[in-house]
Computed example of a mutant assay.
Amino acid sequence: MSAHPRFSLNQATVKYASLAEAIDVTKAAGIESIGVWREPVADIGLDAATRLIADSGLRVSSLCRAGFFTTPEGQERMAALDDNRRAIDETAALAAAGAAGSAAVLVLVAGGLPAGSRDLKGARERVRDALGALEPFAASAGVTLAVEALHPMFAADRAVVSTLGQAIDLAVDAGPSVGVVVDTYHVWWDPDVFEQIERAGRLGRIASYQVCDWLTPLPADVLLGRGVPGDGHIDFGGLTRAVEDAGYTGDIECEIFNADVWSRPYAEVACEVSAAFTRVVAPELL
């Protein structure tokens, strides 16, 4: 069994798997790349995690996730920035341990409104300031900070960055070591998405491409409404062609948040999403 050479299994798709288990099912499915999450790394420690990655022979496509820096000045904000610096170091270590072609990309989710706040503009300004503060540290570590715009329904609690255009603006303001994530689930609805993908490519800012589908009806917990590519409403052909035309040549992650997917055997899920990628996304790859 083999997967498309650019397909990467993001650990969120097999959420309850340990890092060792996720590596095993990735390799068994013939997948060459894995997107790693910080929590399973923390469970065993960075040194053990890097050894597992080095022994696996897999590429690392990204580390998820850091960010969450919309709080006002104070101890909480300082702690968030310190945590992001640790995440940058983790990203560099895991990418160095991975096979050739690994990407030192740290995915960032901006964070929502602070408790009791309605100041969306101020929260976005604090995201800009945090990226500017972190960019030199990331550059010195050889890490790209990848800002992920989330669908507007998450603006209050998860990410005040709601469009790809906003993410690109932040990246450009912060410096050359900041890019963006193009996540189909979060950007497919945007009437300006194709223009913004072209812009991101022209500026050399596409750091990651993630794919999953938009399912309806939405579940009660809307965070868990992601589906296997091809099962929902997203035009993967158009979006993938746009990302390819914009010059992105890296691994493409499948990242699914879905309780039903999470409840199934990891190996079964890995094979299913790999097959869906080959069927729905791969025909558009150059």
Rank of each mutant, 00 (worst) to 15 (best):
M1Q: 13
R6A: 04
T13F: 00
A17W: 12
A17V: 12
A17I: 13
S18K: 06
G30V: 03
E32G: 14
S33F: 02
R38H: 14
A42V: 14
I44C: 00
G45F: 08
L46T: 08
I53T: 07
I53G: 03
A54E: 08
R59I: 06
L63N: 07
L63T: 02
F68Q: 12
E73H: 10
Q75K: 15
R77I: 07
M78D: 15
A79N: 12
L81M: 02
D89Q: 06
T91D: 00
A93P: 05
A93K: 04
A93C: 06
A96Y: 11
A96M: 11
A99K: 10
S102Y: 04
A103V: 12
A104D: 09
P114K: 01
S117D: 03
A123K: 04
A123N: 03
E125H: 12
R126Y: 02
V127G: 02
R128T: 04
D129R: 11
A130G: 10
A130H: 08
G132S: 11
V143W: 06
L145E: 01
E148G: 01
M153G: 12
M153D: 12
A156W: 10
D157E: 14
R158G: 09
S162I: 15
T163E: 05
L164C: 09
D169S: 07
V172I: 03
G175R: 00
S177Q: 13
G179D: 01
V182L: 10
Y185H: 04
H186T: 06
W188C: 05
V193Q: 05
R202F: 10
Y209H: 02
D213Q: 07
T216H: 13
L223A: 13
G225E: 05
R226F: 05
V228L: 05
P229T: 00
T240Y: 00
V243L: 03
E244L: 15
G247Y: 06
T249V: 13
C254P: 06
I256W: 02
I256D: 07
N258P: 09
V261T: 11
Y266S: 14
V269F: 09
V269G: 06
E272Y: 08
E272R: 07
A276M: 09
R279M: 02
A282E: 01
E284L: 15
L286V: 15
